[in-house]
Amino acid sequence: MTATENPPIVTPVPARPAVARRHRRPGVAALPYLLLAPATLTLLVLLGWPVLSVLLTSFRRLDLRELVQGKVVWVGLDNYRAVLGDPTFWTVTLRTLAFTAACVIATVVGGLAVAVLMRHVGRAVRTVLQVSLVLAWAMPFLAATTVFQWMFDQNYGILDKTLVRLGLTSFAGHSWFTTGFSTLAVIVTLITWQGIPFVAFTLFAGMLGVPAEQYEAAAIDGASGWQTFRAVTWPAVRPLVTLVTFLSLLWDFKVFPQVWAMREGGPDGGSTTLAVLQYVKGIAGSHFGVAAAVAVLMILVLVGLTAQNLRLMLRAQEYR
């Protein structure tokens, strides 16, 4: 029965619901838990078990030999020592953080801009925009990556041609993939392009919830576009911005297929992120123990990055 003592709505005097609740049969109290059980158990089994397995593997030496022979060799913190003692790991971690920040900021700011745009244009134009967004969203990762490779290609790329035509002749035959930085810039563009649709749709949907009177009042008060945005739109969509920032953080920090498919972490490891490093050590290099240690460290960084964000989000939900 205790389950129902803690309703999420903060009401000063919850008189009527309390009366209604007293009449419930005992079986009803267990119902929420029964409803929650299947999803929770599924997740515990399907995701909890790999997490546990990765954690245990990170304390073992598990190369191809041990894997084939089925031997279990515990090495304590050796894998962590190896990873943390490798200067490459720190470079890659900093690079991944910068890469994630660039992706998340570009996606959220771009998505917000597109959402505001959708609110301002007529129905026909908005439909065109929405269809374009769905197109970008729907494209398989690999197809999108291939198209971007060709767009940015040194010899065949449409981007260099366009820049030359615009008068920037120094871009003739410019290669975007010679440095890690510009390779990552291309990948950030790709991920932002694919990430904006979800963010834009979510934020636009949030803006639809703002009562029209508030905009009318702002217009009567003679507020400028920016003032209206700050006073009316922003407070309404801020919780949503927190949500999409959190989700983008989760996705972009761990993103692998696009980064790998673009240049396999090259040139010379210059576009290697933590997810790629983990793949290179593990699946490609068959040092599964070391790879697992990298994965555990990634989880720790991600928890550190999102903990504050998540706590704010949950608190906001609690006082709805």
Partner: peptide
């Protein structure tokens, strides 16, 4: 529920 999204997918491949 949300914390289970922290696991990098590549890490789950081997298990």
């Amino acid at each position: 529920f949300l914390s289970t999204k922290m696991l990098p997918m590549v890490a789950g491949l081997l298990p």
